[in-house]
Amino acid sequence: MSEESIISLKNVNKWFGDFHVLQDVNLEVKKKERIVVCGPSGSGKSTMIRCINRLEEHQEGSIVVDGIELTGNLKNIDNVRKEVGMVFQQFNLFPHLSVKENITLAPIWVKKMPKAEAEELAMRQLEIVKIPEQANKYPGQLSGGQQQRVAIARSLAMNPNIMLFDEPTSALDPEMIKEVLDVMVDLANGGMTMIVVTHEMGFAKTVADRMVFMDEGKIVEEASPDKFFNNPESDRTKLFLSQILHQ
């Protein structure tokens, strides 16, 4: 099983000061697998996926992404980041650059792609997220949903093997959530390996291969969506589900 894994977390521990935010986290993700991570706030789910592209450093255990172990080695970190795309809750678009420039920047400077080719690529990515007409606007002129779709396009332009989503719809107005989720469903259907931290249980039911439930820095339950929603094992999961499904 472990040879097939594209992401492998073994006994990962992390502390923020004295706060033990990740406690012996183990997670194996196979190629093309779609994982949805949920759990109450402060449970360490964002921290976990931020460790996967080294935005956070873990202190114990090992994280191997696509055969590369994440250590202090800067070269490895750069290589992992080229493999792994990330979408943030707050979009984090570059406000001083146009939408097109946001997307072409990394291909041009990190992958040394010629400008014309990068622009063509950007337009293709914008078609995929269904907003090619916004190419020359600035992020501040777009709605939240559009910004998040640009952020997805920006990540995809680096042609990653893995996409991490850190609560991609939590900062959006309700009527914009769907347009972002639609893009993510397309992506999932296209065979992208995805780890998604979200509270959108509808999305989880449609696309997830596996649900991961975290609480207090630990993975409490891992199960197929069917089992997770209909027949969860732990009481903590039951309580959590009853709270978010009946709000």
Partner: peptide, 10 residues
Amino acid sequence: GQYEAAKSLG
């Protein structure tokens, strides 16, 4: 977030 976005793009 600007630093994180830049880093995550490699």
